[in-house]
Each structure stands twice: as C-alpha cells, then as structure tokens.
C-alpha cells in the first residue's frame, strides 16, 4: 500500500489501517486525504485516535509499512527513520502540541524563533527575514506587545497564541494542531481561529484535532474550507 504522492494539491494522504502502539494496543484510523487549502477538523471521543493521527502526521510516531501508509507533501512516512521524520518539522509540518509550553529562559520572540534559529541552518539574512515574519505573525495574533516578555509574565491565552505563531513561523505546508483552543477564553479562541484562517488563506493547510465546537464554529466563520471528520471510538 503506497500513499498518493503524485498529486500536487494533495498535502496529506493518510491510510492507517491498524496502528500498533508500543503497549501492543492497536487503533484503526479512517482514510483521510487532505487537499491544499483545507482546514480539516478531526473530532471524536477520548481514545478515538485524534492525537495518534497528529503524532503520525507530524512524524513523531513511527509508522511501519504493514500498518498502513502516510504521505505528507509528497513524502512517504512509512518505514522511514527518525531522522527523516524529524526533517519534516518545521518547514513541511508545523506542530502545535496539546501542551502549551514555552521555553522559560527565552523571551516570547525568541521562543517563536526557535524553529528557525535552532532547527535549521541559518544565515544572517534568513534570521532577519524570520524576525520580520515573527513580528508580523505576533501582530496578526494580537500579541505583538508581549514579544519581549518572558513566558512567566504572560497569560495562558497569550502563550497559546505564541505557540501557534511558533508553529507557523517556518511557513509549513501543513499545520497540525492538537486541541489548540483548550483552556482559551472566547477572545483568545477567536484570535487563534483568525490566525489559522489567515495562514490557510495564504496557501497553508491545517489538520486540527478539536472537540471545542465553539472554536470550530469560529473557524467556519473565518474560512469556507473547513471540513469535519469524526473518528469512531475504538
């Protein structure tokens, strides 16, 4: 079984029949094809495989060929090494994990720059460009004023938006976000929805695990390309 990696408009082609965890438990995921410019919302009960789907797509979890196939932006992820899967991030896949966490000794701006400054080979010019983009995204997320603040001096909502900016900084082809609106108030949730919609309008694609219906409604309000998939309980 091979993923469809030929189509230019197909960003992710997920066909995982039976993923086996290290504990021995298995989980089946539905076939999902994500086209460029889509916002795919994955929902379902706890244990339905939302996070597993995201971890496989971001390359954090390894997929064996006999368990299925998974193509992201033309890259077949089945049976590839950790190093090759790591290479997906941050340029092909931007990941916004469930846990909102910024590095404490770095300012918000420095945190946002981590995917460029620490994960990639950079030149002076790329860092200048990255700084400009970081400021633009922080502004779009409504948190430009906290750029120089330290993580312990900002709210959870602001940290969450900073994490979204961090995931988007390297202009990934696919944004994977795991419960991005958890613990956010209405204002922060709306700002986050606008930021993601704006990214998709500029040519991005998003795969979001969420059971926050209000957040999904806000996304639908901001973008017409939202598609929902409900995972069945296993």
């Amino acid at each position: 079984m091979q993923p469809n990696t030929a189509s230019e408009s197909l960003i992710a082609d997920i066909r995982v029949a039976a993923f086996r965890y290290a504990s021995g438990a298995t989980i089946a995921l539905p076939d999902i094809a994500i086209e460029a410019g889509e916002i795919v919302i994955v929902s379902g009960r706890s244990g339905s495989g939302k996070s597993t789907l995201l971890h496989l797509t971001t390359g954090v979890l390894a997929l064996r060929r006999e368990q299925g196939s998974l193509g992201v932006a033309g890259v077949d992820l089945a049976d590839v090494s950790q190093k090759e899967r790591d290479a997906l991030r941050p340029c092909i896949v931007g990941w916004m994990p469930q846990r909102v966490h910024l590095l404490h000794p770095l300012s918000v701006l420095e945190n946002v720059l981590v995917p460029i400054s620490m994960a990639m080979r950079t030149t002076r010019n790329t860092m200048v460009d990255a700084r400009v983009r970081a400021h633009t995204l922080l502004d779009a997320a409504g948190i430009a004023t906290i750029a120089d603040k330290m993580p312990n001096a900002i709210s959870v909502g602001q940290a969450s938006r900073a994490c979204a900016v961090r995931a988007l900084l390297a202009k990934p082809k696919l944004l994977c976000a795991d419960e991005p609106s958890a613990a956010l108030d209405r204002e922060n949730s709306t700002a986050l929805a606008k930021l993601i919609a704006s990214y998709v309008r500029e040519g991005g694609t998003a795969l979001i695990a969420s059971h926050d219906f209000a957040f999904v409604e806000r996304l639908k309000h901001e973008s017409e390309s939202v598609r929902e998939i409900v995972l069945k309980s296993q």
Binding site: R89, R99, L103, V114, P115, A119
Partner: peptide, 16 residues
Amino acid sequence: ETDLAVLRAMGVSRRR
C-alpha cells in the same frame, strides 16, 4: 524534559 520535547517538536534534532 518538556522543554527538550518542545525543541524536538519544533524540529530540533537529537544531535542538537
């Protein structure tokens, strides 16, 4: 531990 996991999530290699 969480900081290191975040670094890895952002694409920072094990070597770095």
